[in-house]
Write a protein that binds this DNA or RNA. Structure first.
Lengths: 216, 216
DNA sequence: GTCTATAAATGGATAGAC
DNA sequence: GTCTATCCATTTATAGAC
């Protein structure tokens, strides 16, 4: 498995820690340019310039602009897997726990890089269908699954009565997003009032809990 | 106001009924190309070709590609105003009324042209900030306002108890959208099971009503 | 693998005839 | 207003030297 011949190849570069040196620069530059300009407006020249390599080197790694785009955005989607860490709110009362999950969720969604990926993927998913699916499965779908697990535990402990945790998770996450996330993706400068967001999330949690209150 | 000189100018063309003949062709073609290719990948050549005019004519109407794009997408956003007609469900019991509103909402959102506009606007809103705002205000914002009005009436009749109809409308519409709309924008071919959508909406309505049940 | 140089096509935008 | 023809910068992609 280990390759003795070219052992100390990575980790000598301050850039992203992808295998190889230049390929890391290329991917980082591509990421930056594509997320900033979108697929159509981005140019391989700009990427090569920012990566400090020649265009020929780009094409040595990736056979086409499309391939580079797909590789680079797919990788970005994959990262989302890592970010949404396990919910550490199991010990709290249910309303406090859900509020915490909601805030954590929104803090993640509203990160500028996450919004940028969202924009590019939505914008290009008509032309890159696989991309839409990859994004969906490594992002929203995964987060929903984890939230469903959490809700299942909540239901098993009898704190709420949730016959279908999958559907409940979808409703919960959708409520939390509300229009705040949409405004984020639309780049509407809207001095995000954290206190107001918290009030909104609190109301969402209240409605959710009312909907899944145990009957006993 | 009326212009006797060039009276019978419009309405002689099978294309879209915008003022003038060629300008209508241009806008229709631009709409089509931009929505299909996105801003960056679309070309003025392609638009001119599809509109059956020369590029010079394009530039006679609009000074730049950006201007044509903005004009054409803004116009498309404006159309959304019209589509979401007044809610005609006031006479139904509240749960049935809300289910109906939800279905109507989703039928609108999932129309291919509406999804296409959504994709383009989200994709380009990073570079065209005014576009994001125009879309938001003529689409989601307006629909939310109308839904809030409806909920206010419901609350005034005592069917539900809704202290803040604005927030409630946001929660309601967000739940209805769930992940179905996201999958639509991501162009994920997902044989839309209408029966399942109806079940989902029914559950969303159930949770919503539980959250705003009058206390009496 | 990596570069310089360039091919070959297309991009947005315009000049000038009618 | 509309067209043909064209300018010139930029595009994706490649050939060939090192």
């Amino acid at each position: 498995m280990a390759n003795p011949g070219k052992a100390a190849k990575a980790a000598s570069n301050p850039e992203v820690a992808v295998e190889g040196r230049k390929v890391g620069q290329v991917l980082a530059a591509a990421r930056h340019i594509f997320l900033e300009e979108g697929y159509g407006s981005a140019s391989m020249d700009a990427i090569a310039r920012e990566a400090s390599v020649s265009k020929a080197t780009l094409y040595a790694y990736y056979p086409s602009k499309e391939a580079l785009f797909a590789a680079c955005v797919s990788e970005e989607c994959g990262k989302h897997r890592i970010v949404y860490e396990a919910i550490e709110a199991e010990h709290l009362p249910i309303d406090q726990a859900l509020i915490r999950v909601g805030l954590q969720f929104m803090r993640f969604l509203l990160r500028p890089e996450v919004l940028a990926v969202h924009r590019v993927v939505v914008g290009e998913s008509g032309r890159f269908p696989e991309l839409g699916r990859a994004f969906y499965e490594s992002g929203p779908c995964l987060i929903e699954a984890r939230t469903a697990e959490f809700l299942q535990h909540v239901s098993e402990r009898g704190e709420l009565e949730i016959p279908n945790p999958q559907v409940a998770a979808e409703l919960f996450l959708a409520m939390i997003k509300g229009h705040v996330h949409l405004r984020g993706t639309l780049a509407i400068a809207h001095k995000l009032d954290v206190a107001e967001l918290e009030r909104f999330i609190t109301e969402a949690v209240r409605v959710f809990i009312a909907g899944y209150q145990p009957k006993s």
